[in-house]
Every structure is written in C-alpha cells, then in structure tokens.
Design a protein around this nucleic acid. Sequence first.
DNA 1: CTTTATGTTGCGGG
DNA 2: ACCCGCAACATAAA
Length: 269
Amino acid sequence: MPELPDVAGSCRLFATHLAGKYLTSVIVRNPIVVRGRPVDEFIRRLQGQRFEQPSRHGKWLLARTRGPTLLIHLGMTGRLRWEARESAALRFDRVDLCLEDGKLVFQDQRNLGGLWLAADRDEVREVIGDLGPDAFGLTAQVLEERFAGPRMVKALLMDQSILAGLGNMLSDEVLWRARIHPCRRYNDLEPEEVQALARSLHRVLTDSVKVGEIPRGPTWLASQRSQVNPRCPRCRTGLRTNRIAGRTSHWCPVCQVDQPRPGTRERVG
DNA sequence: CTTTATGTTGCGGG
DNA sequence: ACCCGCAACATAAA
C-alpha cells in the first residue's frame, strides 16, 4: 500500500475530516504502534488538541496542532480509514483518533508503521531523520544534483535521504517508464536517459498522487504485479525479476537494457 | 512448512 | 568514507 501517493491520499483524508477539529479521545488498541513515548503520555498530550492542515514529506504525514505535532508513518501495511458512524473495530485497527463526528482509524497488519509525537521542529527532525527533498515536484536539476555518483539508480530512487517518497513499486514503475535497467549506475546514464528518468518520475507521481495510489491501468507496470505471468505492458515480453538493493525488482529485459550485476560477475581486465 | 510482502535501521564486508 | 547485501523488526497470506 503505502508509498508517496498513498500517503498523499491519506493526507487528503486527514485534511478533509480532521483539519480544524478537536480530538475528543484517542483509543490505542495496540501500543506497539505508539512510538517514542509511553502510551498514556501519548494519549494525554494529544487528547483535546485541535489539528491544523496536515502536510506530507515523503512517506511521512505531519499533523500539527497548537501543541505537539502528530507524525504518522504507514510502514508496509498501514492505512488510514475514516468512519463517520459508530462501528466495531476491525481486526488490524491499532489506533482510533475520535472526533465528534466520527473517527480516523490507523490500521496496520504488520505493525511496522506507527505514530509519534514531536514537541517542536527539532523533535520532528529527530523522528523523521535525514530526508531528502520530496519526490513530488522535484525539478530535473535537483534530481541530477542529488543523484550524482556511482550508485545504482534503483537504490537512489528508494533512498529516502536522497529523495523522499518512493518505495519499491514506484521505483520499478519509474524505471520501467524511463526504460532504464534498475542496476544501471547513475554515472553511466546518457544525458537523454537522465532526462527520461526525470520526466518519468514527474509523470508517474503526478498521475498516482491524483489517484491516491499507484494506478493499475494497462499502461502501468503495477498492473502486472499480481499476474501469474507478468509481462511488459509495452512489448508483452515476460518481466525479469531479481533482488536489487534489498527488494524484489521487476523489469522488462527488452525495454530496459540489461547490465551485468555489479560484484556478482567475474572481474575481467 | 516455506516464501513473500508496498518500510526502515543498523551491521558487516568489500 | 562509500556502497552493497542482508538480517531484523512483526505479522499474515499465498
């Protein structure tokens, strides 16, 4: 679920239902997702606060109040859900933020996501760590500056300190659209490829943020993820799969020209 | 039972 | 110092 577009959607949901409203109560169903301070303190500090307009940086959702800032990260399986009516908790519901007219539920199957409170900007920085500029709205020039070096493009795209917001699926999507093999090193890219990368990033993010998730339409690589025989949406070639930068990557061996994996081949010459 | 999963962090080795 | 792979975290679903 959650990469930049999903968090953008969650941010809109938060803005729609919580901005300007007072929290009447906080229900913590699984304390493991409350990070950084004891649950009772978390609840005490948050209850009664009024939310301002939320913002997003990469995969982080930032909800300021007059007091602390609530920071939400969805991890691998987290999501936010608005319930306007009284309703029973679902299996993976972890925290309820209750208002007068409904509740925002943080649900998370794997509990890798979480909620933090930060008293000020410094504490926000401490929690979210060293984040690069948000990937949405990034200019080609900034991309070139931040990517400069010998690393594999897939690793660069997923590195939150280089640019914030892309994960495994979105990175594959961007590379596929730009016709660049995930193992290519940034230094080895032709200028046209760098251009294609910047354009692909822009297009993929614009379209997916609009939807609030990665679209699964016929012109998206993501449409093939759940298929038995994943094929390139452009040329129908069977997709290749490998573990790159720690994650399973999918690419088209025809559209995205192959490269020997660094370090895994003989070192000739 | 084994494998895999959209994230992050920290460690070891080259 | 930089870069890569990998285990760990927690948990379910295929």
